[in-house]
Amino acid sequence: MKSVPISKTERKRRERLRINLWCWAFVSMTLIFYVAFQGWPILSSIYFSLLNWSGLTKDMKFVGLANYKELLGDQLFWNAFINSFKYMVLVVPLQLVFSLFLAYLLNNPKLKGSSIYRTIYFVPVVTTAAIVGIVMVFIWGVNGPLNQMLVSWGILQIPINFFGEGKTAMSSLVAVAVWKDCGIYMIYWLAALQSVPRTMYEAAMVDGAGRFRTFRSIVMPMILPTAGVISILCVISSLKVFDIVKTMTEGGPFYATDVIATYVYRMAFSSEMGMPRLGYASAAALLFGITIIIIGAVLNMVKKVLNQKRYN
């Protein structure tokens, strides 16, 4: 008789244990893949970055912080590092403003065919960046249709080698990137804009505010919190750029568009520089990864502070 209350708590305890085991069983697959292809790689990156190692042989030598020391004096590394940020600074505002403009135009229930426009602007997002890059090389090329258009419309006197010249390569890259990804930010903005009640626009319009005024004083303050998230996403993803750079310019001409991802790829996997240097490349990749994480964290903090200010 006495055993009844004990067995009840015991049963509860067992039930909780059973649930816990099941839960861990359910997450185990994600956890294994996470550890194998994200967690472990990060940790071993740290170890690799302390080695002098080609990756081709088992011959690795522990060199401490020598790779990092060498990186600090490596002009090509800093060139790639700065180019990554240059690219980000150019892409992010253009991308955000242009996609917001499109979203604002399309967020109008009276506009016929807005879903068709939305689909069209979104198509580049779902297509393979590498393929787009390869095809764009010709479209933007000296003999390509873009130059032919610009010359025949009288905008250009002679064709420009957009990707072949250091002066234009980066901005051409940015233009293609905006074209390619603008659709996704448009969808983000549309999601944000749809949270603003229709009646608020109409009230402002009735009060005689123009489209721009309505946007600035009614819509903008309301979508500001989401705007923070969208901007952070845009900054992070622009710093990760690889596919279109690799396929359009290979980082050239003369490293004018070389970003960290192409730099690391060249160091680690390409034979053009002689023996690959996995240890050195790991150090560069890690340094940049940490930079991105810090930027992400700082932006998140800024966003939080700004949000708090707004509510106070």
Partner: peptide
């Protein structure tokens, strides 16, 4: 979320 693929690609290749 913000870890770029380029920072893990070398060890992933090794794995």
């Amino acid at each position: 979320i913000s870890i770029p693929l380029v920072s893990t690609i070398i060890p992933v290749y090794e794995v």
